[in-house]
């Protein structure tokens, strides 16, 4: 088995390390990377995590559709959810709606569905993007799908936790209302990250780096996780997770 890994494998490993044992964790539509990360966590350090993976037979417990997941989150019973926004800004706000102006968008996405609600009511939300550029990390999003800092007096459980990309792990500082550089991914540098992020980051000293994926993590990912993932995201499992 090779120690080299794909960008998606690295992100899945980093995400898996964020999942805590015993948590109730859910992934939504088009979320192959976090689905891989969550199953990896379950297969390694978090055997008692409850996984809810939309589109899976094995990991979807509700009989009546995705609304049940939203209701559960509104009751405050969802510990962790994942979103992949088009843009993320300095204030922790995310955009899953459009690029450009609302009336004449250059790009209109299918819509945010439950993400507006879930960004607020899930206890933590991990954002993920394979693209880490000034196009995705902007000073101000074109459209606030969900606000990083909600208006005064709004009851909320969680909100943004970290962003995972191929270059970095950014951590949201809820008190300071700003992003800090949580870790530099293998192969990246602080300069590389700063050049590709459209707002200033708090950079702690010394700068933490992401430990390389271990052989144990890669083996689990490429065997048990890949097998399970084939039934949910067959194309992704084939293309992005290497064979053992």
């Amino acid at each position: 088995m090779t120690n080299a890994y794909t960008p998606e494998e690295l992100m899945a490993v980093v995400i898996s390390r964020e999942v805590r044992n015993g948590e109730t964790v859910a992934t939504g539509l088009a979320s192959a990377v976090p689905a891989a990360g969550c199953i990896l966590a379950e297969q390694t350090h978090a055997p008692d995590a409850t996984l809810i993976i939309l589109g899976s037979r094995q990991y979807y417990p509700f009989p009546a559709g995705s609304s049940e997941l939203h209701f559960m989150a509104q009751r405050g019973e969802l510990d962790l959810f994942f979103l992949s926004p088009l843009q993320i800004d300095r204030a922790g706000s995310i955009n899953l709606h459009l690029a450009g102006s609302y009336d004449e968008p250059a790009l209109r996405l299918p819509g945010a569905y439950g993400s507006v609600l879930l960004y607020r009511v899930a206890r933590r939300v991990i954002l993920f993007r394979t693209e880490h550029t000034r196009r995705t990390f902007v000073e101000k999003v074109d459209f606030v799908t969900a606000a990083g800092v909600p208006p005064e007096g709004v009851a909320r459980e969680g909100g943004p936790s970290v962003v995972v990309t191929t270059r970095a792990l950014l951590a949201w500082d809820g008190d300071g209302k700003r992003w800090t550089l949580g870790a530099v991914q293998p192969g990246s540098t602080v300069i590389d990250i700063e050049e590709n992020t459209g707002f200033p980051l708090v950079v702690p000293q010394p700068v933490p780096t992401t430990p390389l994926p271990t052989r144990q993590e890669l083996r689990a990912l490429r065997t048990r996780v890949r097998e399970k993932l084939r039934r949910i995201y067959p194309g992704f499992a084939e293309r992005c997770i290497l064979p053992p």
Partner: peptide, 14 residues
């Protein structure tokens, strides 16, 4: 009654 939508631009367009 929906929790969690406050602060979204969705409300200005809906």
């Amino acid at each position: 009654a929906v929790r969690g939508l406050l602060g979204s631009d969705l409300l200005t367009h809906r």
